[in-house]
Amino acid sequence: MRTATVAAGLVGALAALTALTGCSGGGGDGDGTAASATPSATTASASPSGSAAVTGAAGKLQGSWITTSGGKIVALVITGKKAGLFVTGRKAWCQGAAGEESGMQMIHLTCPDGNKDRVTGMVDAVDAKGMTVTWSGKTGKETYTKAEGGKLPSALPTKAKQ
């Protein structure tokens, strides 16, 4: 029963992140009301290190990605240049940009609660089923599984060994 409750909550979180990042199943533009009701995010801008700006996410980064870390579920949603991240048990989600930067696929997030665990991530590998990201914060390397059609994957990965 507890797993079903967590799963239902995560599906709701994915829906909220999808709305936040502007992704919709109907392909419409949306009116932007979901994004305007939430804190402002840093979008395609220069990274903190001063390197080139994020220019757009490659097709393989697009979608909803799930992992577990410290007993919590982490959902990362990437749509176009926008990225959103939700961790169960935290009240706020993080927003930002994802895309190519200096020849690498990068993710830059800002969290309204000041959390720095997943601020800058470099995509090490990505395919149709999974993605590995190395975060500059204390999180380190994480492996995500792609969630298709708003459904949770059959098995959630755990934090990758470093």
Rank of each mutant, 00 (worst) to 15 (best):
Pro48Ala: 13
Leu85Arg: 04
Thr38Asp: 08
Ala98Ser: 10
Thr143Leu: 08
Ala53Gln: 13
Lys141His: 01
Cys23Ala: 07
Ala16Gly: 06
Thr143Gly: 05
Ser49Leu: 14
Lys60Ser: 12
Tyr144Leu: 03
Ala44Ile: 14
Thr38Pro: 08
Trp93Val: 12
Ser24Asn: 11
Ala34Asp: 05
Gln62Phe: 00
Glu100Ile: 02
Ala53Val: 14
Ala58Phe: 03
Ser64Tyr: 02
Gly89Asn: 00
Ile66Val: 04
Gly28Phe: 05
Ser45Met: 13
Ala128Phe: 01
Cys94Ile: 13
Glu101Lys: 11
Val87Phe: 01
Ala13Lys: 07
Ala97Asp: 13
Thr18Ser: 10
Ala58Glu: 06
Thr21Trp: 05
Ser40Leu: 06
Ser51Met: 13
Lys116Gln: 15
Gly103Tyr: 06
Lys116Thr: 15
Ala35Asn: 03
Gly103Asp: 12
Leu10Arg: 14
Lys141Gln: 02
Val77Thr: 00
Gln62Leu: 01
Pro112Ile: 08
Gly114Cys: 11
Ser47Ile: 12
Ile78Ala: 03
Tyr144Lys: 01
Tyr144Gln: 03
Ala83Cys: 01
Ala13Ile: 06
Thr120Glu: 12
Thr139Tyr: 00
Gly25Leu: 13
Gly22Leu: 10
Trp65Met: 00
Thr18Glu: 12
Gly50Asp: 12
Gln105Trp: 04
Ala128Pro: 00
Lys81Arg: 08
Leu61Arg: 15
Ala58Asn: 12
Ala46Asp: 11
Leu10Trp: 15
Val133Asp: 05
Cys94Ala: 14
Leu61Val: 06
Val126Asp: 09
Val11Thr: 13
Thr18Tyr: 06
Ala52Lys: 07
Ala53Met: 12
Gly121Trp: 02
Lys81Ala: 03
Ala128Ser: 01
Leu76Tyr: 05
Phe86Gln: 02
Thr55Ser: 05
Ala57Trp: 00
Gly63Ser: 03
Ala58Met: 04
Val126Leu: 13
Trp135Phe: 09
